[in-house]
Design a protein around this nucleic acid. Structure first.
Lengths: 250, 250
DNA sequence: CAGTGGTCTAGACCACATT
DNA sequence: ATGTGGTCTAGACCACTGT
């Protein structure tokens, strides 16, 4: 741990930010895969030639951002979109009695298309770039509650097929991660009130004109790269979209 | 910084948590008021007889929770509900073009009443305890966009008058803080889609039956004490309710 | 300039999990 | 017993702010 520092180095930079970046690089390149342990803090400190405290600070931030997960005595793991509490960081629909529940899913539409200007702008594509679109219908307590209309950049999901989607048993984001190496680590939701049109009313089995939540989500991976645009329609007759403001974490 | 520790002390406890608690105590008792600086980390470390690193860890958490705000070179300040970026931690309605804007407010209703079972459960009161109710109408870009129907426990807001509310020029949470010493530091929102009833349609100048967002918020102060129940109705014709999931902070 | 928070180090010790 | 993350210390140095 020599305090080696070529003169003039580390001007305007922060060691722990560099360490954080190097860790993210190793995640992006797949050196450490989702669900796996990463090297101990001691080893990382040797590898990056910094003190343990500096590694800790980098890992602190990554774990605060849910990119890494620490387990005392066991090690530090790469976050995966399994069915842990993490799932509910991205699934905000709860029953009105407050109970969280995993939805069951059926695929009701699948198609390929080209990005229109709106999609292109959101996903950082050129107009006309190939996209994949599909719609999931989610059920809670046996009733249809949610319609997820999802648009993906085809380039990031090579070979994505309707069949693979239909046969998947994991969550959607877990599926992205395991099959295409794409980790959704943040997202922005924008919520509006809307009335059900004929098609969506039929799929959700509500009267046409029934009020629905319309949620537009843009999900991002490392380096803020947008990877998914999603329009969700929620029947809030018995469910709600729940958000915690401040407090420890999302 | 003697490592004084009566034997057996600090079993199952964490020093920095104790420090955090002591800081919160000083906030609750009003020793350090909103907007003011608190003592430097050095002084705190002497006062609590711990190392600076331990104080830093306590302050780290409090500043992550937006209870304290650090300014390098200036000091650490008690968060206040002024019109800083903090305001938008609790005001999530943005124009559909993404621009955030401060609303203008007018008070359209004020009354006193007693807690019904629902209100009592939410605010941790007994049924029949006195409450204050009022409704704010918020405008953005010259149009009525939001109706905030607010219920407060009268005991926590002694002497709250319609006139004081009407003449206030600060934000609502700033008003609570400055006049009643109540700091809202977290809240939970539950969002549903609804249709405007006659009264609310009239106030928001939309057709009866127009789809609205219905947001139920429970706001809390220190120690998770519930201090405000709020029903908001949002016209999302040109605005949206925006939420960031994960990423650095709210 | 002095004082503040921010970074970084180096090491001791604790709590927990696995072998 | 070993190795992991978690806490705590003590101090050096940097970057920023106000006087």
């Amino acid at each position: 741990m020599t305090n080696v520092s070529i003169e003039g180095l580390s001007l305007g930079t922060h060691l722990y930010k560099e360490v954080k970046q190097k860790i993210l690089d190793s995640l992006r390149t797949g050196e450490w895969r989702p669900g796996a342990v990463i090297p101990s803090e001691k080893k990382l400190s040797e590898r990056f030639a910094v003190s343990i405290g500096t590694v800790r600070k980098a890992v602190d931030e990554l774990s605060a951002e849910n990119v890494l997960i620490r387990h005392q005595g066991r090690g530090t793991f790469v976050a995966s979109h399994g069915r842990g509490r993490y799932f509910f960081s991205f699934f905000h629909v709860v029953h009105q009695d407050g109970v969280r529940e995993y939805p069951s899913v059926d695929l009701v539409a699948f198609s390929r298309g080209a990005a229109d200007p709106e999609v292109a702008a959101a996903l950082d594509l050129d107009v006309g770039d190939k996209t994949v679109r599909f719609t999931n219908r989610l059920s809670l307590r046996g009733g249809f509650v949610l319609l997820d209309e999802i648009t993906l950049p085809a380039a990031l999901f090579p070979g994505l097929s309707e069949r693979a989607l239909r046969e998947r048993r994991s969550t959607v984001y877990q599926f992205y991660q395991e099959h295409f190496g794409i980790s959704v680590i943040k997202a922005a939701d924008r919520v509006r009130a809307a009335c059900a049109d004929a098609l969506r009313a039929q799929l959700l089995e509500v009267p046409k004109g029934h009020p629905l939540l319309h949620v537009v989500r843009l999900a991002r991976s490392f380096q803020d790269r947008p990877v998914e645009l999603r329009h969700s329609y929620v029947n809030t007759a018995q469910h709600e979209y729940a958000v915690d403001l401040l407090g420890d974490r999302v």
